[in-house]
């Protein structure tokens, strides 16, 4: 008989689970800025001041690449954590901000804000972000309201179908608004819809950072409740989980961080589907590990996808959303097939 080793879930186990993902993230953060179509001299970049005229290396490193990489990190982390939480809440690994229509709802909100020329800020938050968040949250209410049964459960296959339908519906609304828009707006909409991390600066990154951290923190706070829900809603109730409250926190925080990053980065699909799945395969379904794990791995994943995007056919660039979609499409089909075999869908 094999020896039983019931080590407690101590800080040690936590560190062992999360450590590799943190290291990967730090390595990506250090190495990715050095890679690009223009090779830069790191010594020169770090030695001089930030004077663009005298120090091209520093200019490329600190003004072109680093903010973009930081935005990639925040976006990847937000979408991945949201995916992990949605999958737990719905007990299905096909759930993600993209497949539930939340991303496209946020897109619609953002495009409406652009077409109405809402260019001001409220309390330092741009109307674009607020509109994207409202779109994300509105979609959640719409999709779940349509699907919710009398007993309060959400049949997952119907939910995903509703999500995909919402995706198409919002995409056509976006096209309609685009068609009606004048030339300037049209350009802004197209540019935004392409999705990407390329047009950014430090100020943009810092403006979304607090919301994403707040959202991820809120989700981590209910991570054990989410664990129990992911193992069964009614069992969770009998173990003292406030299921309704946890669902609310999960869906609202998930919509908040999805809306926040989609407003800046545009619709980037499939990250929230792929990342939590890979992390779960590596360290298991415990949300206390899965949330921080997905945060670090998601950040690294999107930075890497974007690095590939900006170097593969340099000097031209492939938007990062195209790279994730090319990876994500086949991945989704594979997951669907696997679930079908297990009889879950």
């Amino acid at each position: 008989m094999n020896k039983l080793n019931l080590t407690t879930m101590s800080s040690r186990k936590f560190t062992l689970g999360i450590g590799p993902f943190l290291l990967l993230f730090l390595a990506t953060l250090v190495l990715a800025p050095l890679i690009g179509p223009t090779s830069i001299d790191i010594g020169k970049a770090l030695s001089g001041g930030l004077d663009a005229a005298n120090n091209v290396d520093a200019d490329i490193l600190f003004l072109a690449r680093l903010p973009r990489i930081l935005l990639g990190a925040v976006t990847g982390a937000a979408l991945s954590v949201t995916g992990a939480v949605f999958q737990a809440l719905l007990r299905n690994d096909l759930a993600a901000p993209f497949t539930l229509g939340v991303s496209s709802g946020a897109s619609l909100g953002a495009v409406i804000a652009i077409s109405l020329n809402l260019n001001f800020t409220i309390l330092g938050i741009s109307t674009l972000s607020i509109a994207a968040f409202a779109g994300a949250l509105g979609t959640m209410y719409l999709v779940f309201g349509l699907v919710k049964t009398r007993h309060g459960d959400f049949p997952t296959s119907v939910l995903l179908l509703a999500g995909v339908t919402a995706n198409f519906f919002f995409a056509s609304m976006v096209m309609f608004i685009h068609y009606m828009a004048d030339f300037t707006q049209s350009f802004r909409i197209v540019r935004w819809l392409m999705g990407g991390l390329d047009i950014t600066d430090y100020q943009t990154v810092w403006s979304i950072f607090p919301f994403v951290i707040l959202g991820i923190g809120g989700l981590f706070f209910v991570s054990r409740d989410l664990n129990l829900i992911s193992a069964g809603v009614q069992s969770a109730m009998s173990r003292g989980v406030d299921v309704v409250r946890t669902q609310k926190i999960g869906f609202i925080m998930g919509s908040l961080i999805t809306g926040t990053v989609v407003a800046i980065s545009g619709p980037i699909g499939f990250v929230g589907l792929i990342v939590p799945h890979i992390v779960r395969l590596l360290i298991g379904p415990d949300l206390r590990l899965l949330i921080p794990g997905s945060m670090f791995f998601g950040a690294s994943f999107l930075i890497l996808c974007d690095t590939v995007g900006r170097t593969l056919i340099a000097p031209a660039e492939i938007p990062v959303g195209v790279i994730t979609a090319m990876l994500g499409g086949p991945f989704f089909v594979w997951l669907l097939k696997r679930q079908h075999k297990r009889g879950n869908v």
Binding site: L6, M9, A88, R91, N92, D93, R224, D225, N227, L228, S230, A231, G232, S235, R239, G240, V241, R280, G284, P285, D286, N344
Partner: peptide
């Protein structure tokens, strides 16, 4: 039925939630 592959010990420990 469980959607995710929790270990037996994880399931038993869920009883400690309250």
């Amino acid at each position: 039925q469980m959607a995710f592959s929790f270990k037996v010990i994880d399931i038993v420990l869920m009883g400690r939630h309250p």
